[in-house]
Design a protein around this nucleic acid. Structure first.
Lengths: 230, 230
DNA sequence: ATTTTGCCGAGACGCTGTATCGCAACAGTA
DNA sequence: TACTGTTGCGATACAGCGTCTCGGCAAAAT
């Protein structure tokens, strides 16, 4: 029996590891949002059956956790530039940038404790930058307050962005963007302050709004760090 | 043919309206979390077929929107007590309380723009309290910054609460609560600042932590309101 | 060469959100 | 009173989901 008669051995399944699984999941999520991520589709991208994934993760939520941690690798800057304020600011900005690249991140941010290695590294870098500037409690409060701010701000920004996209291109005009419903509501006269805000408000771009709010919060932190509590 | 022979006419289906649908959905979510809310189960609670709901909502997401708006009715306080700072503080506190009563709210908070009547009323009340204290841009930034903070903070609090519950009763101890994984990570020595924080950190209760961070943010807002930009 | 082991994937289960469509009960008209 | 038009409910269907079970096959161990 010559070689030509013998069939090639069946190609062994492509080797798999978490990294490739997570990469496939992220690609899927980047393209179609979190809801486009199904274990079946992730597996299909890797030429594998869905059940194969269960050797590497035990639940879909775990896959999400891995995805979030993977993105934290993008958030952690290469090198730290000293000043605590800049460290916090950069962390916030980079998280925002990551969420703009991976909008699904906004859906997951703050939804579960992030305890993966990359997320821990980010926290470590943040804490290190604040170490010694005040007692530990104050430092923790500072980090958590800033995190809470940018988590919430990023979520809102992405939510608005999606709403704008969904209602069609209308970026500027609140009323037209959010449709006749809000207009009607405002017309009832029950919301005078809101109506005024919508009518008179200048359109600020999202980045500036994020940045300004962040500055405020950082100012507050600065004040507390300067005067450590008795 | 007497009355006795004739069967009763089939009982007309129980009348339905959005209020009852939303109430059923909220009850379900309170009991088993957001994932326990399925159109089939909501309909079953109302002795109706799933398809019946589509007369009142056109998508499951809309049902979530209605649920969020319904909870905003709990958030809007009966009467406003003047001072802008207290108005913002009360709004944050009440939102937090609502999220503690309805943990699923944390999953939805900030996820989509809230444009229902109750949410608009809450925004209206907030804006009204700040009206005239500074130029409109500053006021908007203030409201959004505070909202971003408490959205993020509430999310984190609920996330931690769930994690504690999931890993078993261990409320206090970080390391034990988050399991051997984190301990091992810390033991690697790659996260000295984090390790110190975990080791030396005093356990602060969630409410106080929320409240302190909120105060900081409100301080920042106060500073900006006092000095309206040129 | 033979046994053991471990892992992969086909299939199944119960569930999901939603489209389709036939039927039955009402309102209006002759 | 008989008929007809309209409305809206719900049975059924469909495609997809996460996950469990299990049979079989290839690699490793003996």
């Amino acid at each position: 029996m010559t070689v030509w008669d013998r069939p090639e051995p069946p190609t062994r399944p492509a080797p798999l590891d978490r990294e490739r699984i997570v990469a496939a999941a992220i690609a899927l999520a980047d393209e179609g949002g979190l809801e486009a991520v199904s274990l079946r589709k992730v597996a299909a991208r890797l030429d594998a059956g869905p059940m194969r994934l269960y050797g590497y993760i035990s639940t879909k939520e775990e896959l999400f956790d891995l995805m979030v941690d993977e993105v934290h690798a993008e958030i952690l800057p290469e090198e730290q530039p000293g000043d605590w304020r800049e460290v916090l600011r950069i962390r916030a900005d980079r998280t925002r940038q990551a969420a703009l690249r991976h909008e699904w991140l906004a859906d997951l941010l703050g939804g579960r404790p992030s305890l993966g290695p990359n997320a821990l590294a980010v926290t470590e870098a943040t804490l290190a930058a604040l170490d010694g500037l005040a007692d530990l409690d104050t430092v923790m409060r500072a980090v958590e307050t800033v995190s809470a701010y940018f988590t919430g701000a990023i979520r809102r920004e992405i939510a608005n962005l999606r709403a704008e996209r969904a209602t069609g291109l209308s970026k500027r005009d609140w009323q037209r963007a959010y449709g006749p419903h809000v207009s009607r509501m405002l017309a009832t006269g029950r919301f005078p302050a809101l109506a005024k805000a919508v009518h008179d408000g200048t359109e600020v771009d999202a980045e500036e709004s994020f940045s300004t709010g962040l500055d405020w919060v950082l100012d507050a932190v600065a004040a507390k760090l300067a005067r450590p509590p008795a």
